[in-house]
């Protein structure tokens, strides 16, 4: 019974989320990868929310329930039947009736099972895709890391011609340029199409040079730098082309 209910709710949220996207047509940024997805997403949010009306996933909402919930801006109900009834009502109203002012949706897509990416892409058509990395993992049901990389690249391939694909330049499994119609850009530390150079870790965080400017971040590790590069590129993209309706 519980499984049937869960299946129904997944389907119901999907229908409402698709209705929301069709009616409101926000630009969609989808971030995926094995790690650093949340931080990259947060970095993108922090760069875009100054000039645009953005919404992002709540908490780590990133799978079959989480992605539509993020699109509809509802909080998942756990084991509470009352909460789920409320969520269903909210989702219906938001999906089919209320006009949203959100211009850009920034979503986190997590893969665990082999069918996950196809399912998530049946809900969202990303305008911008970011793949943070592909790391060998036992947390996901993929037979090999190369298979996992192929799944991530499905996201890149779903981006339309006017869209943007950002790939980690340091990841060998992402090095083979995807067949995406969108503009493909590799980002990295002294590697790729857009680069950070002179990267140093100090007691205060990371410092580096990007497009001739010295940047300091109050975070540590190379992924903090990579997240900044992805965020900067997306900000430049929207600043240049605007948030176009489909």
């Amino acid at each position: 019974m519980r499984r049937i209910l869960a299946k129904f709710l997944v389907f119901y949220l999907k229908v409402c989320a698709k209705a929301y996207l069709r009616r409101n047509q926000p630009a969609v940024i989808a971030v995926t990868g094995t790690t650093n997805v949340y931080d990259t997403k947060q970095q993108i949010v922090s760069m875009l929310d100054q000039g645009y009306k953005v919404r992002t996933s709540k908490k780590n909402y990133s799978a079959k329930f989480g992605v539509p919930a993020s699109i509809l801006n509802v909080r998942l109900g756990g084991d509470s039947a009352v909460k789920w009834v409320k969520i269903c009502a909210q989702s219906f109203v938001r999906g089919f009736f209320i006009k949203s002012k959100i211009q850009i949706l920034i979503l986190e897509l997590a893969l665990k099972w082999q069918t996950d990416m196809n399912y998530l892409l049946s809900i969202v058509k990303p305008d911008i895709a970011v793949i943070t990395n592909v790391i060998p993992s036992t947390l996901v049901d993929y037979k090999s890391t190369d298979n996992l990389a192929s799944e991530y690249l499905k996201l890149a391939n779903a981006v339309p011609a006017r869209g943007l694909v950002l790939l980690n330049a340091h990841d060998e499994r992402l090095a083979k340029r995807p067949v995406s119609k969108g503009t493909v850009i590799y980002y990295g530390i002294e590697a790729g199409d857009i680069q950070a150079s002179d990267v140093k870790q100090t007691s205060e965080g990371m410092s580096f040079v990007y497009q001739g400017q010295k940047v300091t971040l109050p975070r540590f590790g190379k992924y903090a730098v990579l997240a900044f590069l992805a965020g900067s590129q997306i900000k430049s993209f929207f600043d240049k082309y605007g948030v176009k309706k489909k």
């Binding site: 790690t35 949340y38 931080d39 780590n60 790391i135 060998p136 993992s137 975070r219 590790g221 190379k222």
Partner: peptide, 20 residues
Amino acid sequence: PELRDMISQKLAQDHMFYDS
């Protein structure tokens, strides 16, 4: 890697910034 990533996120919520 995903667990360390999650730990890094939880630490960041408490303003402790560590590379996963």
